[in-house]
Design a protein around this nucleic acid. Structure first.
Lengths: 176, 176
DNA sequence: TATTATATTCTGTATAGACAGAACAAACGG
DNA sequence: CCGTTTGTTCTGTCTATACAGAATATAATA
């Protein structure tokens, strides 16, 4: 399977983007390729199209599965594994965010709490640190809570909300 | 200046966190250190406390300045530069998000638009890609718009809104 | 059971990025 | 001016990660 120029562009750019956000290039390229593929792909499709080694395909797919956005499917009469990216863009991003929260934000909150409880209040420096850590904890907790709320809404509701909020902010301005 | 154990914990963890989000460890550590420092710091303070080379301090500070969250200040009678992290946590995160949007999201939108306009509609594969790219573009554009709206709100309003939305979602459930 | 097809894990190499230390540049004080 | 303080840029080394290819495992068919 040969990529069209447009497909290449997209795959390459998405790969670069992924790298900037902390995932590796190949994984992001694979995600992009699966995203624009009408059918689930097998390892050979990917090897041919993206020109990467089988081992790399295998581990990158595993990574995408760890992120819970790719699953294995099968075609009738074909014993090879086929891989399918979560269809709905919105759901996919939500899944990624959920996962990041679980892996990174939640442990950070944990650490912050530990740091705060371990501050030595007799120590002047620590007292200041404590204040600041509490501030940071509050901020991240609020954002987390906010995200939890938001993530229950569908994209349509969010769209609707963007408009609602727009009116609300105009109202606030008017009342000042 | 010697870091207390709590300070070390925080600095180290924040450094690891930064690495996962695409900035380098030292830069993130420096951010953490500046965050809990009551006073603006000079290069020597940082060299002593974080045990890193002068050159590394210099370039890391430059990086933080590029992200627009650190600025140079001066102390009376001291000709060394002192560095100060943006005080308000919320404003700092907003600044970072703004910058990421500007550097990464906006160009991505640009690329997506280009890809879409260059799709060859005679080509079956490209037709499908086009659909999907449009879907992705819409999603990211909506999220961007949403962010633009949100970012005008202060943290207090968002807090308030989290509660408002909570009521709203209960209302929706009730009406089903 | 042997053979082939498929997928995973292991191992060595290559590469990009981080970083220290040196060299350099600029500003200040004597 | 000349030495000293301070900050930046350059250069080489080290390290972590990405990745290819080989080895291995697993499963299917004959």
């Amino acid at each position: 399977m040969k990529l069209t120029p447009v497909m290449k562009d997209f795959v390459v750019h998405w790969g670069e983007m992924g790298a900037k956000w902390g995932t590796n290039r190949t994984v992001a390229q694979l995600q992009a390729f699966l995203y624009i593929s009408p059918e689930p792909l097998n390892a050979d499709d990917i090897i041919d199209s993206l020109q990467i080694a089988r081992s790399n395909v295998s581990s990158s797919l595993k990574e995408l599965q760890n992120w819970k956005i790719v699953k294995v499917v099968h075609k009738f009469g074909d014993r090879r594994d086929h891989y399918e990216l979560m269809k709905d863009v919105c759901a996919m991003f939500q899944t990624i965010l959920d996962e990041r929260k679980r892996r990174e934000i939640d442990p950070t909150l944990q650490i912050l709490k530990e740091c705060i409880s371990e501050t030595d209040t007799k120590n002047k420096e620590d007292r200041y640190s404590r204040e600041r850590l509490v501030e940071l904890l509050n901020f991240i907790e609020t954002m987390s809570l906010w995200y939890e709320r938001m993530r229950k809404m569908s994209i349509d509701k969010i769209m609707g909300f963007v408009q609602l909020e727009n009116k609300f902010s105009k109202f606030l301005k008017g009342s000042k």
